[in-house]
Simulated scan of single mutants.
Amino acid sequence: MTEQPAGDAAAGEGLARVALGEGVGTAFTARGGGTSRAPYDSLNLGGAVGDDPAAVHANRRRIAADLGLDPGRVAWMRQVHGADVEVITAPRVPDAEPPEADAMVTTVPGLALAVLVADCAPVLLADPVAGVVGAAHSGRPGTLAGVVPALVERMLAHGAEASRMAAAIGPAACGACYEVPEAMRAEVCAVVPEAYSTTRRGTAGLDIRAGIAAQLAAAGVPDVRIDPRCTIETPGLFSYRRDGRTGRFAGYVWLEGGRS
């Protein structure tokens, strides 16, 4: 497990890339450079937070262009803090509702998976040898429910091997900032003890990224990179806990090739 600074995105600006293997593309977006107005300013990619849909659409198209992706071949989810995994085999029909899930897997080149966050952890996984990639939204409920282990299992069912997988855990609320009631910490840590944390204020906290890293290690994933940025402490990233009504940034993963 390694902490990997985000290079030119260390202050929350621009795209942060993580190498997960040959033929695999990844990115974590930031907050600036889009078209949304306050309080979603400006590169909000979340379509269910109250922002102008036209602005969200323009922002999504802009990021797709920056990443060399066809915006019609980016898969999104209706995230519900669960552990369901959706297998994506084709682009979504225009205007169709996205699937209700918190993780996705695909083996289709050029079909990107996107996960939205604003304090929860975006988790990207890849087995480039098998040609399988996955993405998960793992906050407190999802980590407790085991959404990332469920994603690993679904990737194994599609030919991946855990020993070949690489994972990237993106920016999220850090354990020094993520304050929770004592009973909530106890509930999570009864299942994922590595998530135990105490905040800078000396109160009960959760380190979700540490918990996810432990889940990946238990699943046999040897290569785990952690973006050390805390969403609450980084103005260039969206944070629901810091700002309340706000936008969402995203993690993307895809197999290169297959653009139509």
Rank of each mutant, 00 (worst) to 15 (best):
A10H: 14
A11F: 06
E13K: 15
A19E: 07
G23A: 13
V24A: 00
V24N: 00
G25H: 07
F28N: 10
G33M: 07
G33S: 05
S36Q: 02
S36G: 08
S36V: 03
Y40V: 12
G50I: 07
D51T: 03
P53Q: 00
N59D: 04
R60M: 07
R61K: 15
L67F: 14
L69Q: 01
R73Y: 10
V74R: 11
Q79M: 12
V80E: 09
H81M: 02
V93S: 08
A96N: 09
E97F: 03
P99D: 06
A101P: 07
A112P: 00
A118V: 14
C120G: 02
A121L: 06
G134V: 00
A136S: 04
S138Q: 03
G139W: 05
R140S: 01
V147H: 05
V148S: 07
A150W: 06
A162S: 11
M165V: 08
A167T: 10
I169T: 01
C174V: 10
C174R: 15
A176W: 15
C177H: 06
M184P: 02
M184H: 11
A186E: 09
C189S: 10
V191C: 02
R200C: 07
G202K: 00
D207F: 08
I208P: 09
A213C: 02
L216V: 02
L216D: 01
R225I: 06
R225A: 15
D227L: 03
P228W: 06
R229H: 01
C230I: 06
E233Y: 09
F238V: 15
Y240E: 14
R242G: 09
D243F: 06
R248C: 14
F249D: 11
Y252C: 15
V253R: 08
V253E: 13
E256S: 10
G257P: 11
G257N: 12
G257V: 13
R259A: 10
